[in-house]
Write a protein that binds this DNA or RNA. Structure first.
Length: 385
DNA sequence: CTGTCCCGCCATGCT
DNA sequence: AGCATGGCGGGACAG
């Protein structure tokens, strides 16, 4: 634990602060790369933080969205169960159903958890997430705790819930493209307050980044508006073979680096960034340093063998998949990750926007969206759908 | 300038 | 009290 506090890396290679290497999306990719392998059953947050060289706080972000998508399930304090990507389809299906249901029943009491707190509150959906992912979990008797007390204002604003609601936007509405700003307004169900919307958008960026790293969505631009927006790729994206390679690096100006940063290089608040120049460590000026176990060799192995993960089809999670594979090369041979058969998964899970409820829902939101648009923007736009 | 979004403070929840 | 979680927004960075 040679606390590499300073910027100067211990291994000689200088590390100047690089925001790109710290992105949630990259971190998520590395996280997935690190744990998506044979034998992984549980994940310790501390372990993850150490291996990835980031603070715990960041792990929470990732874990929260991954959990909301079904990839992980909280098992205990500090511990998560790896469910794998195979759990995604059912999780999404569930979200979709919930989304349709909650919309559909303005009367059904039961789920009206809507603790209309202060001003505008998030809602659009009120559902108790978690539970879904697994059935085999006697450990946490009753899977959920405070089901009794739903007045958990905090949970309503959780990243996990927001993630699910964000996903529902795509699953339950026909819009396959939406800007984070609009998403925020819709999710706030009254995004009149600029400050609140901005805050929500910030969160959505976090979410979008991890979803994008998994290629569930992709960044694009609205046809006319030119405004940045995200398009839903869903499971489809996973099944195609060549096209799914790089969600980030290609469509991004913000192409991130290839390697994992697992040094606590912090951005300097005052130091101007001296790109590629001197080896000048970053002055970490404030803050306690992160206890970093420096396991560079752990995830640092570029492997030049993109297809070594045979059964993954050509699907590679994250932007840098091709070049970076965890060290488990050893156990690579007999790994039969049939659960990654996106081909069949995609076939099984097919969005079916053909029922009435969905149409109604869509119509409803289209209306809402339009009105909000005309409110905030002087020029009403037509929805592409 | 606008769009992104990292960072870590600190409120909150759980022992 | 102490540790685990994670909301939240300041402000750095990118285009």
């Amino acid at each position: 634990m040679p606390a590499l506090t300073g910027g100067a890396a211990a291994d000689g290679s200088e590390q100047i602060y690089c925001r790109k290497q710290k992105s949630l999306g990259l971190l998520c990719s590395n996280f997935l790369r690190l744990y998506d392998r044979e034998g992984v059953e549980t994940i310790g947050l501390d372990d993850a933080a150490a291996r990835l060289g980031v603070e715990r706080r960041r792990i929470y972000d990732i874990v929260n969205v991954l959990e909301s998508i079904g990839v992980l399930a909280r098992k205990a304090k500090n511990r998560y169960t790896w469910k794998g990507f195979a759990a995604i389809p059912s999780a999404l299906q569930l979200l979709k159903e919930e989304g349709l249901m909650t919309n559909d029943n303005a009367n059904d009491a039961n789920s009206s958890i809507k603790t209309s707190d202060d001003e505008e509150d998030d809602t659009y959906s009120n559902f108790n997430y978690s539970s879904q992912t697994d059935k085999t979990n006697p450990s946490t008797a009753s899977g959920l705790q405070g089901s009794s007390k739903f007045a958990d204002n905090r949970k309503e604003k959780s990243l996990a819930l927001l993630t699910q609601n964000f996903v529902k936007l795509f699953l339950c509405m026909d819009m396959d493209m939406i800007s984070l700003d609009d998403a925020a307004k819709i999710l706030l169900k009254n995004g009149r307050d600029p400050a609140m919307t901005r805050s929500k958008v910030r969160r959505l960026y976090d979410i979008a980044n991890v979803l994008a790293s998994m290629k569930f969505i992709e960044k694009t631009h609205h046809p006319e508006t030119r405004k940045p927006a995200f398009r839903w790729l869903g499971m489809e994206g996973k099944s195609q073979s060549g096209a799914d390679t790089l969600a980030f690096d290609v469509c991004k100006k913000r192409a991130f680096g290839i390697d994992l940063t697992n040094m606590p290089v912090k951005r300097s608040k005052v130091e101007p960034k001296v790109e590629g120049t001197l080896n000048q460590g970053i002055k970490v000026q404030h803050q306690k340093q992160v206890k970093c176990e420096t396991l560079e060799d752990e995830v640092h192995r570029p492997k030049s063998q993109p297809d070594s993960r045979t059964n993954m089809k050509s699907y590679s999670f994250g932007p840098f998949a091709p070049g970076n594979v965890p060290k488990v090369a050893a156990s690579e041979d007999n790994k039969t990750k049939h659960n990654h058969d996106w081909e069949s998964i995609a076939a099984t899970y097919r969005p079916q926007y053909h029922n009435q409820a969905l149409k109604d829902l869509f119509a409803h939101y289209v209306e809402a969206w339009k009105s909000w648009y005309t409110e905030v923007a002087e020029n009403p736009i037509q929805l592409t759908s």
